[in-house]
């Protein structure tokens, strides 16, 4: 065997180790798409809030039914944003997977999904509990913090850069804890701006050369 062959063998080993343990086809554009959904969602939420306060002032006081209605609208909006973000995110990642000609649903994808879902589902139930107990102001910071933890957990099974996005989400969530009624702005930063910035950075780092 020649040197060239030995080097090739070592490269093969590294590739096998990486491909079997990390899902590396996540596209940066998925992040950008999710971020845009987040920002759009925050904007619509702002409109809903503004309309609520207009009614509040006209009425000159609090109304139980109207407040419940506001909550319901926001929860529905949140779920729609989540679906749109996941859908558009999946679209760009699938597109990249097809380009790279690897299989999407392999061991690494399964591991990534399980490990991101554990903290995320925990967070989801925690937030449902917060809403149930009327601790609404805590919803925004809690979702940011659990999302950040989920990303950090997931970073072991995908691009390690995801870890930094996770850390940023946690920081934004923790700051939000001290500015409780400004949750919408922190959400816009955490789910909108951070995703877009992260997505562009990742696209620049890993995909730019492949596309050009």
């Amino acid at each position: 065997m020649t040197d060239q062959q030995h080097l090739q063998t070592i490269t093969d080993i590294k590739r096998m180790m990486e491909r079997s343990s990390r899902f590396i086809s996540l596209s940066g554009l998925s992040g950008v798409a999710a971020g845009i959904c987040g920002l759009a969602g925050a904007f619509i939420a702002k409109l809903i809030f503004d309309a609520y306060y207009v009614r509040y002032n006209l009425r000159g006081g609090y109304d139980e039914a109207d407040f419940r209605n506001l909550k319901l609208n926001l929860v529905i909006l949140g779920l729609c944003v989540l679906l749109a973000a996941l859908g558009s995110g999946a679209f760009f990642t699938l597109r990249r997977v097809r380009k790279m000609q690897v299989s999407v649903w392999d061991m690494s994808a399964r591991k990534l999904l399980i490990n991101i879902l554990i903290p995320l589902v925990t967070g989801g139930f925690f937030i449902a509990g917060l809403i149930y107990n009327h601790a609404d102001v805590l919803v925004a910071p809690t979702s940011l913090i659990f999302y950040g933890l989920a990303l950090i957990n997931a970073s072991k099974y995908t691009l390690s850069d995801v870890r930094y996005l996770g850390l940023c989400e946690i920081v934004v969530g923790l700051i939000n804890l001290f500015f409780l009624r400004k949750g919408l702005y922190f959400w816009a930063i955490g789910f909108g701006v951070l995703h877009i910035v992260y997505g562009i950075l990742m696209w620049w780092k890993y995909e730019r050369k492949l596309t050009l």
């Binding site: 180790m17 343990s21 061991m107």
Partner: peptide
Amino acid sequence: VMSILMVN
């Protein structure tokens, strides 16, 4: 096989 089992 060995490479895969080293990390999984």
